[in-house]
């Protein structure tokens, strides 16, 4: 199997010894079919056991191993070395998040925001389990299915310049999941979620750069979800003001 020597420039930060992050380089003998994560695992196993990063499934579904690879938010388990020409690859922790250590970032902000949008079914009418499943046609399923595919990998937040400038922004993934539940035929909780969605830090903070959708490894298209919610919120506003008798 052909081998390729690649220099990895890895951003290191140890809060106990460093004032700020710095770059360490490692020269790694890489196999042709490796992904960036394989090279990082090689570093951990053979060159430097102190390098910290998150990973688990190695099949792009657990969402642990998001990193900036050559400046682009990427799942390192799906970043094939064959797609990187040249002999150098730069690896940094995801942008816009505080660095806990090395390639590990602090995710508290997202976890709080996810909870704030009530990402669960709020049924229109409670139905006991004994009465069986809610009927949902393939058509109704398709309506929201795309937005269920989010693996919470945070690449979209690392790509979103608005989140970088103002971290009060609820952000792409959490809003896409809000949209997912709003569109679900079993759900009746949209009005409860609107409080968060329609505020300034909700959909209106988004200026539709579209970067989130471009980097999304699961084609969730959060940018689309947010624009659709803007339209729906606008319609709400007009209905409320032009037809006040329709208000709840």
């Amino acid at each position: 199997m052909s081998e390729r020597q690649i220099t990895f420039e890895v951003l290191r930060y140890n809060p106990e010894t460093d004032d700020k992050p710095w770059v360490q380089t490692y020269s790694v003998p890489c196999q042709e079919d490796w992904v960036v994560l394989d090279a990082i695992n090689y570093i951990k196993d053979h060159l430097d056991t102190s390098l910290s990063y998150r990973w688990s499934c190695h099949m792009a579904v657990c969402g642990s191993c998001g990193m900036m690879v050559n400046g682009e938010p990427t799942l390192s388990c799906k970043a094939f070395l064959r797609d990187y020409k040249g002999s150098k690859i730069r690896v940094e922790p995801l942008s816009h998040f505080p660095i806990e250590r090395d390639l590990v970032v602090v995710l508290d902000d997202f976890m709080g925001k996810l909870q704030s949008v009530k990402p669960y079914i709020i049924p229109k009418k409670e139905k006991p389990v004994e009465e069986g499943e809610y009927k949902q046609t393939p058509r109704q399923l398709k309506n929201f299915k795309q937005y269920t595919m989010c693996i919470n990998c945070m690449l979209c937040y690392a790509a979103c310049p608005q989140y970088g400038l103002n971290d009060d922004f609820i952000g792409p993934a959490a809003l896409a999941l809000t949209h997912r539940y709003n569109l679900d035929s079993r759900d009746g909780g949209r009005s409860q979620r609107q409080e968060v969605v329609a505020q300034h830090e909700g959909v209106w903070e988004c200026s539709f750069v579209g970067a989130c959708s471009e980097v999304c490894p699961k084609d969730v298209d959060p940018a689309g979800a947010i624009q659709q919610m803007k339209i729906a919120s606008t319609v709400d506003w007009y209905l409320e003001h032009l037809m006040p008798w329709r208000a709840k």
């Binding site: 809060p15 942008s95 505080p98």
Partner: peptide
């Protein structure tokens, strides 16, 4: 020991 590092944009 925590001291998360914030990169300013």
């Amino acid at each position: 020991s925590r001291k998360p590092y914030v990169r300013e944009v």
